[in-house]
Design a protein around this nucleic acid. Structure first.
Lengths: 370, 370
DNA sequence: GTGAAAGCGCTAACAT
DNA sequence: ATGTTAGCGCTTTCAC
């Protein structure tokens, strides 16, 4: 259907090599011939086929990008950042959503591998590491958003599986798990972000501060939770165990966790939500419980999403530079295969945006609950 | 670097065709050989190259998706829908952001064409139509989110341009602009959505209702604005010209438009925002102007984003099924090249979500403005 | 400056 | 059931 280089060559009365030269810019072509080729191409509506070229050059010009959920504001910003950068680099991007599901993550990784993307950017779900395979292949891999989980589950998925997908996790026997340290990562400095929020809250006089976390219940406490405990400890504020609530990354789960926390600890004077879903939940639950913000309860959250400012009162939030993270990660993922990546993870600063949702420790008068 | 089909064939002591059969599922292979092949493949960490296969089969398994801004909640939902569907279809998706810029749109279309995507889904910016080229090529094209603009700008971009990009808009001379009607589209029934909101507002007694539109100032009124006028007219409510404000799709522009409208028409009792950016602006400006919602001003908006519920009061909104739109569009874009698409655009229903931001027409007592 | 030819990794006849 | 062969559209020596 579509015209090929041969058609153009024939139409222009030249060899295919000449047509190639005209379009790839390489080599020298006389102005006259170039014009004839261009004209012929125009007539035929010719566009060089990337797949033909890729086969020869071994570069597809594509970058693989996998995030848990494109609908999440942080992820969306990140994607936008990658897109921005990719554009300047002349790369395109294959996007997919992992939903935080390791199985899906593995499928996506496989797909990216098959498609021979030039680089991969992944926001890993934290269980196992379907992405590590790329470092063996020499495909630049960059983690974003969160550090590659230190304690990777190292599950071998169905060694005796069916024909399709039989290769997932293949060859992971001997040369398995690449040293985590050698995979570059671009992250927000979450610990610092959490710390700034904690310090702010403690500075307002709060002592009983709840934490709404994101990882699956039962999972090892994630980095944010650790950071929260560390920050409070450093400030001399004891962290009681039931002050932290964990939820899966869904609205329902976040709501349940928030409701649970706020009800079992009615003495809380503040909560720190570790993500926008938790933040939403906190606001909603507080409203449901007739807690006035910030008079009865101060709320701060990680992720400065658009609605933070629209809330009443506007929500104090820790802004993570999602766009920058995506942009920087893309630069690394698109780097020449030879070049070495930065040794440690790139930590981008967060920013505490103080709005109206936190107040000095409240008088404990009437806290109507239910 | 990566193992090829030949390596595997050699390692397994079989012909390359056999390896191909094992991996493509086609043809019959004895269990014994299959195992040997699989084992060899595993050892070599072999993954069939999509680029080799695509060259032969003339299908890349990729779909092109272009939206103005992945960061916009509606677009994000749409993207998520496409991703969902593509996954079930075994396709991957190339995503890019147009920013509503026709030039960028054209570049993206070119890229998709070069990459030989199997189908294209585009949320067109409305000026010109860089996408029409695909119908000539026989690549399934589907518009989403808004109807392809009837009055296409038909600009020919730099006919005598440099070598690179010289073919943008090429061959558009004779067989140009495909009949718009033959390009399938999946859209929200915006007109009905606007109408439902307008009827709701009028039903509450409102007569002076402002409209916050999205298209560039000076551009022909877009479908939503038309729908707004039509809806009010049908209800016997006159639409004064300066009741509608137009803005570019940016926060600043939306804010300026909202501020302008609310200030010049302090007699407004309600506003209908045509998108989430306008809605944000309306809320912010109302707050700035010390207008109580809904006592002094009722607000309704198109797009039921997450924050609508978090607002105080929660915002009444017209929900558009972004996810479904994406899903349906993907089905159409991935259809076999032969099959005919639906004749008319697919119109998906909207849903008026009544919350607390609209009230019966207010007493006109004290409306403190600046 | 330009053309001929070899091959990139794969699939699909066609043989066997 | 399996191997051989001919391309798919392109880039790239290597001649001329």
């Amino acid at each position: 259907m579509a015209a090929t280089i041969k058609d153009v060559a024939a139409a222009a009365g030249v060899g295919i090599a000449t047509v190639s030269r005209v379009f790839s810019g390489a080599g020298a072509v006389s102005a006259a011939t170039r014009e004839r080729v261009l004209a012929a191409a125009r007539d035929l509506d010719y566009r060089p086929s990337a797949v033909g070229r890729s086969l020869k050059t071994r570069r597809t010009g594509g970058l693989g990008l996998a995030v848990p959920d494109v609908t999440d504001p942080f992820c969306a910003e990140l994607v936008a950042g990658v897109l921005d950068c990719a554009r300047t680099l002349g790369q395109h991007v294959l996007l997919d959503a992992t939903r935080g599901d390791p199985a899906r993550e593995a499928e996506i990784a496989d797909r990216f591998a098959e498609q021979r993307v030039d680089g991969v950017i992944a926001l890993p779900s934290g269980t196992g590491d379907p992405w590590a395979g790329f470092v063996r292949t020499g495909v630049p891999l960059v983690y974003v958003g969160r550090p590659p989980s230190a304690r990777s589950g190292r599950r071998r998925s169905g060694t005796g599986g069916a024909a399709s997908g039989a290769l997932s996790g293949a060859a992971s026997g001997a040369a398995s798990g690449a040293v985590p340290g050698e995979v570059p990562a671009v992250l927000a400095d979450d610990a610092a972000g959490i710390r700034s929020a904690a310090e702010y809250l403690v500075g307002l006089g709060h002592r009983r501060i709840g934490f709404l976390g994101a990882p699956a219940p039962g999972a090892p406490p994630d980095a944010r939770e650790d950071a929260f405990r560390a920050a409070l400890a450093a400030l001399g504020v004891p962290v009681e165990e039931d002050l932290v609530a964990r939820a899966r990354p869904t609205r329902d789960s976040a709501y349940a966790a928030a409701a649970g926390l706020l009800q079992r600890r009615s003495d809380l004077t503040a909560v720190l939500a570790s993500g926008n879903l938790s933040g939403e939940a906190a606001v909603l639950v507080a409203r449901e419980l007739d807690l006035r913000v910030p008079a009865d309860l101060s709320i701060a959250m990680v992720d400065d999403v658009a609605w933070a400012e629209l809330c009443d009162p506007p929500l104090t939030a820790v802004a993570r530079p999602g766009r920058d993270i995506g942009y920087r990660a893309c630069e690394l993922a698109a780097r020449d295969t030879g070049r070495r990546a930065p040794s440690g993870p790139v930590l981008l600063p967060t920013d505490l945006i103080v709005r109206g949702s936190c107040a000095p420790i409240p008088s404990r008068r009437e806290r109507a609950r239910h």
